[in-house]
Design a protein around this nucleic acid. Structure first.
Lengths: 318, 318
DNA sequence: GTGAAAGCGCTAACAC
DNA sequence: GTGTTAGCGCTTTCAC
């Protein structure tokens, strides 16, 4: 492993000249610079990130922390963030679980995007004191170095619920995701808002955890009920898909016997026979906006951090 | 942002004592060590990764490079790697595209696991000279610091094809994934081996690219044929699912009019009505083995890098 | 236009 | 048991 010293020696110049040349400093004439670059190349020299980071107190790297690699929603979001970051020469790294805490604490990146409900608010607030800009996607936090970019769940779910209501549905139940999470709370808020406005009572509430499995359990539960709901407004697509699968397997018609709606409009919905009515989020576009905002924050500029809108995709499931 | 100096000053000791205390050096008596740790905590001190990395010439971080965040196969693999790495105090970071090259070049991690066909062999070989252990999952490379851990595609696909043959199928076609990739090549090899052994001709070959969309196109193509194949052995599940969807949508029976098989046994298969016969890979377990091997290599120990076996999951699609 | 040298925040050898 | 100090590989100020 060669260092800048080796290059300097091989080129017969000082290490500072090598540094200037490699960083395209205008003081070095192109001829010299090219010669040095050529030599560096031949030697197989690459600057050490550790040394540069230490000296510059910057890493040109951004961390995106997610709760797991399985979620169907992350794909496009990560792509969106990555694309925009790459344009500006930033490196994006992704982590989960314990790794995330390590990376944040030790300032391995210049900024971070957090979408991992396993990280507590307290940890984040503590960390925000050493790591400058942190954008959170999965909660709302009012803190100096923390910026919020969330999806306008409430508004979207209100619209969806209004649409359900307009179709004449009664006995409308709500299927919760993980209790206490931003996404679940705000989606439920939008739902109740629309229900109250229409003077409708919430017929029943089910407690799921955003997974397809939890949807399946709820589906079984519904099958056993004497007076089941007519309509199931679900906090996300995966649960809706789970419920739908179980109900259909038992001969229920959707729509007909039951109406179902989701949220997120995940790609999976296209693998399924009855197309799910859902809220589509442009995760790729949103990812680009998030990166854009983070880039501004890294330059100490203000950044727009408005809520991302969802659009109602009416299909066949109610 | 506080440094080790601040802690030393606050504790009235030298920076080396702080360093020793924080790294649990036995020379520092527990009382002192605890006092110093407490102070570090109060100050909100965390060691800088950059400084430590530079000094120790190690990062205790491992990179996993994948080709995109969307693939349904990566989820469990990443979880498996992460779990094992975390046990040994290593941090795992994941990257795609341009970011991967940056991280590898600048030695931001101590080792790497590569599953990204966009990275050329040449790049990898060049990089392997500075970054010590690299495990590749998506190709076979014989190079000093590069280790191969691949799935035994050939053997698995041979078994599957033998099973197809034993069911009496004729007019058997193969659906290729991305041309030239390790996975596609070796799966096709296994297929042809079994076919030759049974003195069967390959009825037809279709060229897909591992995506569901490409499966759909192939499905359309098949519908137009006068003498379509009876059986479609696909290089992966996603293409098989795409074909199945199109054929079923046009009233074809599976099995019956067509038999179909996949490879990978992705979770998605469970969203679909006709369960796909496929090769199940224990990606989580494999991930743990990969991490185990990398950990050994990082300690300069030998590592077992045998091929991962797949198991045939016979279900309903042929 | 180029070089000498300081210093980023740590670790660890060595001295006491 | 604790402190002093060199040095990891760079960037950048300041001289020349």
């Amino acid at each position: 492993m060669s260092t800048i010293k080796d290059v300097a020696k091989a080129a017969g110049v000082s290490i500072s000249t090598v540094s200037y040349a490699l960083n395209n400093d205008k003081r070095i004439p192109p001829i010299t610079a090219d010669r040095i670059k050529k030599i560096a190349d031949d030697i197989g020299y690459f600057p050490s990130a550790a040394a540069r980071n230490l000296k510059k107190r910057a890493t040109y790297t951004v961390l995106v922390a997610i709760s797991d690699f399985g979620g169907p929603v992350y794909h496009e979001l990560l792509d969106g963030i990555h694309v925009r970051l790459a344009q500006s020469g930033y490196t994006m790294i992704v982590s989960t679980g314990a790794s995330t805490a390590n990376l944040l604490k030790e300032r391995s990146t210049d900024g971070a995007v957090i979408s991992d409900i396993h990280i507590t608010d307290e940890t984040l607030i503590q960390l925000s004191k050493s790591l400058r800009p942190i954008i959170v996607l999965d909660r709302r936090l009012k803190e100096t170095n923390i910026f919020n970019m969330t999806i306008d769940n409430r508004e979207a779910m209100r619209k969806l619920t209004e649409d359900v209501l307009s179709k004449g549905y009664q006995k409308i139940a709500y299927v919760h995701g993980v209790h206490g999470t931003y996404d679940n709370n705000t989606r439920f808020q939008g739902f109740t808002e629309a229900m109250s406005a229409a003077h409708e009572n919430v017929y029943r509430e089910y407690q799921g955890n955003f997974t397809k499995k939890s949807g399946e359990w709820i589906g079984e539960e519904i099958l056993k009920e004497e007076n089941p709901p007519q309509m199931l407004v679900c906090a996300n697509d995966e649960m809706a898909l789970g419920i739908m699968e179980v109900l259909q397997k038992h001969g229920k018609q959707i729509p007909g016997d039951f109406g179902i709606s989701g949220f997120d409009d995940i790609e999976l919905s296209s693998y399924v026979t009855t197309k799910l009515t859902s809220i589509k989020i442009d995760h790729f576009g949103w990812g680009k906006k998030i990166a854009e905002a983070l880039l501004s924050l890294l330059k100490d500029e203000d950044a727009p951090t408005e809520r991302e809108k969802g659009v109602l995709k009416i299909r066949d499931s109610y």
